[in-house]
């Protein structure tokens, strides 16, 4: 039993918990006192939403290796589902988030089952089509406002909600990734035939990946809807899907740390480029081209930042004095 407790009270776990709490409290005080003004707050919230979107897409594209480019579709379902619950039916925000996320997850299964026979480019096209179908369907439902969208959604999304849900999302996905179920997903990415002949039910794990990815995209959608008062079908077009895809590819397909870093960095970058609207996409694209030329596997490849990795890096540096590449700092 003491062995078990040691697992929970490892130094790294304590440090991470403290860091999370400090970050939460610091920002919370900043917002309360007005030190963090509305502009910074907006970008901070966008960073959180984008992190959730990036790590959730990373389950599908990075871990399981199924190239999906319709992620904004799942986000739209979460946004509309939650907004209907709070705005139209008067349920509390928590119910809204849950319903939005579950609805998105169900769509994940719905898309997953028939399209998972497809591979590579074909799957990408199918998911792109799915994202567009959702957008067009919503556009034509008068109940949710059609093209004008839903207006007057209460702003329930505050710092405690968005921060805790971001942390929970990252933790859940990280825990999934480092379990035997996560490894089953990764084995599909690495070699589908070998995975299948080693007893991995590949269809099941592909559907699980799609469902989990869609669920958290739904959470992000719900948070988005309840921050911006209003949602329109155009917000969730394929350009949004590509934005999310860029975070994942730039950070490194399969790396959670990479997704978080890329989502944060690119959100900040596009905030700074807001003043040069006409140049924004040019600079953004140039950056992508450069990164893909220099590091085609993404910033972090499939590596993760971890305490064990850092420890191993330093022990190698001091122990053997062997020059280790930056990949060994992450493991």
């Amino acid at each position: 039993m003491t062995e078990m407790l040691k697992q929970y009270f490892k130094l790294s776990n304590i440090l991470v918990t403290v860091a999370i709490l400090v970050l939460f409290a610091a920002v919370n005080i900043g917002i309360e006192t007005g030190f963090i003004d509305d502009y910074y707050k907006l970008n901070l919230f966008l960073i959180c939403i984008n992190i959730i979107l990036a790590v959730s897409l990373n389950i599908i594209n990075g871990m399981t290796g199924q190239f999906s480019i319709g992620h904004a579709g799942f986000m739209a379902i979460g946004a509309y589902g939650s907004a209907i619950m709070t705005l139209k039916l008067g349920y509390p925000f928590a119910v809204g988030i849950l319903v939005g996320a579950v609805a998105a997850a169900l769509c994940g299964i719905l898309v997953g089952l028939p399209t998972l026979r497809l591979k590579g480019d074909y799957l990408a096209i199918a998911t792109l089509g799915f994202g567009e179908i959702i957008r067009v369907v919503i556009l034509n439902i008068d109940y949710v406002g059609g093209a004008a969208g839903l207006n007057g959604i209460s702003q329930y999304t505050d710092w405690p909600w968005i921060f805790s849900l971001t942390v929970i999302t990252v933790l859940v996905i990280k825990n999934f990734m480092t379990s035997t179920h996560g490894r089953a997903c990764i084995s599909i990415r690495e070699n589908e035939i070998a995975a299948e002949t080693m007893g991995i039910d590949i269809t099941r794990y592909k559907v699980i990946a799609f469902t989990m990815g869609a669920f958290f995209a739904g959470v992000a959608g719900a948070l988005h809807a309840h921050y911006f008062y209003t949602i329109q079908p155009t917000t969730f077009g394929f350009l949004k899907s590509f934005d999310i895809l860029v975070y994942v590819v730039l950070g490194g397909l399969g790396s959670m740390t990479g997704s978080v870093i890329a989502a944060t960095g690119l959100t900040i970058l596009s905030a700074y480029l807001q003043d040069y609207a006409e140049l924004r996409m040019v600079i953004y694209s140039l950056l992508l081209i450069v990164v893909m030329l220099v590091r085609p596997q993404g910033l972090l490849g499939t590596a993760e930042l971890s305490f064990d990795g850092i420890r191993r890096f330093f022990s190698r540096q001091t122990g053997k004095g062997r020059g280790a590449g930056n990949d060994s700092a992450v493991g």
């Binding site: 035997t180 179920h181 490894r183 089953a184 990764i186 084995s187 690495e190 070699n191 035939i193 070998a194 995975a195 080693m198 007893g199 991995i200 499939t302």
Partner: peptide
Amino acid sequence: RLFSNLTVMDNVKIAYH
């Protein structure tokens, strides 16, 4: 057909899934 980007340990652990 190994899971070539994974560690030796993970390769074996996946078959234990």
